[in-house]
Structure formats: C-alpha cells, structure tokens
Nucleic acid binder design. Structure first.
Lengths: 221, 221
DNA sequence: GCACTTTACTGACATCATGTCAATCATTCA
DNA sequence: TGAATGATTGACATGATGTCAGTAAAGTGC
C-alpha cells in the first residue's frame, strides 16, 4: 500500500543525500590532514559547518564514516581500472594496465588508498547483511569483476593461461598489488635509505608479479 | 668517567626489564582479546596487576606498546623464516619454504600478523633515529636479510635467476606474501562466500608468485 | 494566512580513556 | 639509622565520544 512519494519528500531526500556527501567530503579532508586515528568528529563537523551531533545523525560513528570513504574509493578505483582495461586489446595487456592503474590510483588518491589499507587490515568479527561494511565488500567485488573480465578475455585470446577459478587469481593479483603499493607508499622513506625509489620498486613488482599468467609455450588459444 | 655499575643496580635493571616484558605480555593478551583500537591501557595495567600510571612509565603511549609487540613479532618471524630456509638445500626451495613459513607464522600468531599489518599500513610522518618505530624497521630489515640470503644462495646454485638488487626482490616478495596472507586472514569469511578456502587461496598465491624467480632456460649457474 | 505534524538540527550532559604529577612506598647505601 | 634514590600510585585535568531532550524549520491540510 505504498503511496507515491510527494514532490517535497523527494526534494528533501535529495538534500539529505547532498548533506551526506558533504559530510563525507569533510571527513576526507580531515582524514587526509590528520590521519584516521587522530581525526576528530568535531573537526569533520566544523568543516561541514554543522554541529557535531548532526554528524552522528548521518553516521553512527567514525568507523561508518570511514566505510563511506572506502565505498567512494572503490567506486573511483573501479572506474579507473575499467578505463585502463578498455584501453587495451589483449587480455594480458589489460591486466598489466590494471596493475599500473591501481598504482596510479594510489598515488593520485593517497587517502583513498590508505582507507582501503585500513579496511584490508581490519578484522571484522561479524559482517551483518545490509551493514555498511558489507556494502564496502560488495563494492570490492565490483572491482574484482573488472580483473576477472580481463582474465577471461586473456584466456580467450590466448595471452593468458587458462584459469579455472578466475576469482582466485583476481584476488591473488589484488593482494599482491595492494601489498606492493602499500610498501612503496608507507615505506617510501625507508626505500630511499636502502637505495631504491618507490617507482622502481613498483615497476619491478608489476613485471615480477605477472609471470604466473603466461600461457605455456605452444598452448592453443 | 663512567664507574662500574653496582651489583644491585644491575639486578634492578634486570627486574625492570622483566616488568617491561610482563607489560608487553599483558598488552598482547589484551590486544588479542579486544583488538588494538578497543584495547584500553587500563586493561593492560589490570592484567599486569599494576597501576595504569606505571604503564606510562614504561611506554609513552599505546603506540609504543604496539611497536614493542611488533618487534617481538619480527623476532619470532625471523627465527621461523631462518629455520625454514635452513631446512632446504637449494635456493629456490628456501624461498618457497620462507613463503610457507610466513603463512604458518600468520596462522600460528594471528596477533603478531595483525600487528605487522597495522605497522605496514601506518604512514609515519617522521621516523627519528633511536625511536621505537625505527627499531621496528630495523627488525624488519633483519627479516629481509633471511630472504636475501636465500636469493643469493639460489643465484649461486642456479635455481634462481641472477638478481642485481636482492633487496628489491626481497621486498617485492614480502609485499606480495603479506598482501596475500592479509586477504586470506581478514577476509576468510568472504572467501568462503565466493567458494574459496583460505588455504587453497594461499597455496595458489605461493605457486603463482614465484614464477618470476625461475632462471631462463639454459642459463648457466 | 493559520494551526498542526513531521523532520532537521543543536546544546548540554554523562561517560570514559588518556596522559601527567605530586605524593607515597620500598630499597639501597653510607 | 637516616638520607637518598628509584619504583609505584591516586587523583586530576583534559579532551573526545555518543546520547537525548528540546528547539527551529519546513511541509501539510484547511
């Protein structure tokens, strides 16, 4: 028996959504400036020109805000990876492009990458259906789908070995790449100390990590 | 002008060290139970049967306690990797063993692995010489040395391709393995959902990640 | 336009963890 | 024994979190 929502109802929902986004904007700025741990809800509120209490109306707590940032991060990431893959013809090249695009993403949006790192490192006790944590996970799957598509394309055109469980490979690649970027990013100063540049490190990581995808010599496409 | 320390002075230094270790023990227990974020200094103090104020005498803050746990973790890890490498003759097999040992370590000491994950994800603004954060970094280098030794052994016996920058490769392998374990560990429930077991995932990650080390066919040892 | 309802928003509060310090307790040493 | 040194703590100030009752504002029906 649901009635058609009134015009003003729709408009207000819209404004609510806008405010929500504005709060995430503010949170991103504060997180970027002070880091997640040190970031205070008060700062987020001030930056959004709103009382602290209102932030709690939109987000149950700081963790929920972080999840919201993660979802944004994964949305942007998916676009980038997708565009990168579309720019290449052969499956193998798509995968290389995806790896590079992830690295570019990390250096273009360090905050987003840091948010994802936190999410990866965080061990949840339970993930309820419908929770925002679950939503982040699902956004993650959407990203993996891009990789999976490239892998199957590669299997078809013969540039990548046949794979029975593409999700397994996609996750492996994701873990590898994420791990490598994380070192390059958080330990950049240390890398310098031992005479390595972060770029050099990442370039090597890409070259090195993709060997496993090569099809056996003489395998038919 | 330093005089020989008195007998009682030495004994008391010893007791101080013991207490310090006891505090780290307590911290480990609390961290394992409640996670790093939720862990309270009060809990650590209570578990060590000590006032909260005393904890602050030994550790400037919670972060310092975490660094202490990281150092322990890296000490244990180094032993494990070292033992694993020593159990194999050929360089390549040493590397495989090291990878497996890291995985075994992560499943045997989930708290230690989580601590290292946090450390990897954490972006420091400055690392002062002599700081405990620096000490963790150095303990990390000690771990990488094990890998580097295995790599050079492999280059010598011909089971691994020649490498001009072993630290580069060691760090790449570290990043890969860590990234993969992290997914297997924190996202185990999710892996199940998509029909993968954590063990299967890790086994694949090892096989997949080491392709880059193979020497070119017909390369001389 | 006016009453009335629903929704957005906030100030003030209770709670709780952190980090500090002066004061106390225990021990070594002369 | 009594001074001195070091270990330990209770009590405090500070600051962040999350909640809630209450106010302001916008929407609705007349």
């Amino acid at each position: 028996m649901s009635r058609k929502p009134s015009r003003s109802r729709l408009r207000r929902d819209d404004e609510k959504e806008r405010r929500r986004e504005a709060l995430i904007d503010a949170a991103e700025a504060v997180f970027a400036r002070h880091g997640f741990e040190a970031a205070k809800m008060e700062d987020v509120a001030r930056r959004a020109r709103v009382s602290r209490a209102l932030v709690y109306v939109y987000f149950k707590n700081k963790a929920e805000l972080q999840f919201a940032v993660c979802r944004r991060a994964l949305r942007v990431l998916r676009e980038r990876l997708s565009a990168a893959a579309d720019g290449e013809k052969r499956g193998y090249d798509k995968i290389v492009a995806i790896g590079r695009a992830y690295m570019a993403f990390a250096s273009e949006f360090p905050l987003y990458f840091a948010a994802l790192s936190r999410f990866e490192a965080h061990q949840p006790d339970r993930i309820d259906a419908g929770s925002s944590e679950r939503a982040v996970l699902e956004a993650g799957v959407a990203v993996h789908e891009v990789t999976i598509a490239a892998l199957t394309a590669g299997a078809r055109d013969g540039t990548i070995a046949r794979i029975d469980k593409p999700m397994l490979v996609a996750l492996t690649l994701w873990g590898y790449t994420h791990g490598a970027i994380q070192i390059a990013q958080t330990k950049a100063a240390f890398l310098e100390e031992v005479g390595l540049s972060a770029d050099e490190f990442l370039a090597h990581a890409i070259r090195f990590g993709l060997q496993g995808l090569r099809p056996a010599k003489g395998a038919k496409p």
